[in-house]
Design a protein around this nucleic acid. Structure first.
Lengths: 200, 200
DNA sequence: ATTATTTGTGAACACTCGTTAAGTTAATCT
DNA sequence: AGATTAACTTAACGAGTGTTCACAAATAAT
């Protein structure tokens, strides 16, 4: 890796960290540059503007917070054991959400919710909707194969996902107070409770 | 009401609006003053600093987003009809959350989450925890009187509240896309689904 | 109606902001 | 190795920041 590429990644990483903590407006280019040990002007060798940094952060981290990429073969083969499936999935999801960069990114989305960037609106909403869509698919599949009882997959999806986001906000949001253990514990409690409502 | 008090309230109202949209750092004193038709220096007749405005916003709106104040006698007398109780309460809560000032305040808390103000940390978390505590109380009462089946009131509270916050974020967050009707509809679906899990 | 007080303006302050240009050092290529 | 390109520094720009101060206008009290 060339030197330029290296510092560019460093700038991106530090920007994510600072933007998520102090917000985009609350972070100056001088804050950024000094956090990577450079002068402010050096930033512009790698990015055309401060906004361009934010844009590239969203290009890099913006996809797939929903968890679609967690659906590997091992997991898909569990579809016929819904409780096991949900438990395994939610633990994987929470572990992903517990990653420091994912935490920073979530904080950033909350802080910059509503901001336009390259004509696209940053939106907490779309995070929720993306996650919901995945689970509507999953529950549709499960009802079709009669692995769970009949009912609206949309409602099932809402009821399953909402507590996971709730847990995320409670245990995986405040950087000084991350508690992955409690998060997973409550997610298991949730899955157990939820399973009782949808089993055949 | 004297003139001074009037403009002070105007400044507070406009500040809540602008801070919630552009963030504290993203809003200048000149933005504020011009939004109420004044010069920037006039602001300092009513507030000692920009930060003091933010502090007073949190003093004014910061209490009781949890919904404790919605628990009037009419509602308490419904405790023995849990489904009716939950349905009535959540509709009241969502209507409150659908109020424009409440929407702005929620956006503000999301944006300024983690910021210290007067030594107190602004925190999304405490909003969730406050709401949860209220419902732990309620479900404890309901289990004691055997209005609902046995089980952990903490889990019940999580399972009941999480979807309400989920709904809030989906339908009562983006100012240009408020949909109270859908919010209430989904809350009713949720209550119905949830009721099946906790009825005796 | 006159005075006292409150609320507002206009201009300025010291400082920080994002960004650019010219020149220097360091890394890469042949 | 020397030549070429990439990466960084120093210095500066115009504009915007929060805040202050002397003064003017409007309101409230006598």
């Amino acid at each position: 890796m060339k030197k330029g590429e290296k510092t560019k990644n460093l700038i991106l990483a530090q920007s994510l960290q600072l933007f998520s903590k102090n917000g985009f407006s609350g972070t100056s280019v001088r804050d950024l540059s000094s956090s990577v040990g450079l002068r402010e002007s050096a930033i512009y060798n790698h990015f055309s503007s401060k906004k361009a940094i934010l844009a590239e952060i969203f290009e890099k981290f913006g996809q797939s917070t929903a968890g679609l990429n967690l659906l590997d073969d091992e997991l898909i083969n569990m579809l016929n054991k819904p409780q096991k499936f949900m438990q395994t999935f939610s633990e994987k999801l929470l572990r992903k959400w517990g990653d420091i960069e994912e935490i920073h990114f979530f904080n950033l989305v909350l802080k910059e919710n509503g901001t336009e960037i390259n004509g696209i609106k940053i939106s907490v909403n779309s995070l929720l909707e993306d996650a919901q869509k995945v689970w509507v698919m999953i529950f549709t599949e499960m009802t079709n194969h009669k692995f769970i009882k009949k009912g609206s997959p949309e409602i099932f999806a809402n009821e399953f996902i909402a507590p996971l986001f709730f847990i995320r906000m409670k245990f995986l949001l405040d950087e000084d107070n991350i508690d992955l253990k409690s998060a997973i514990k409550q997610a298991n409690e949730h899955t157990e409770f939820f399973w009782e409502s949808i089993k055949r």
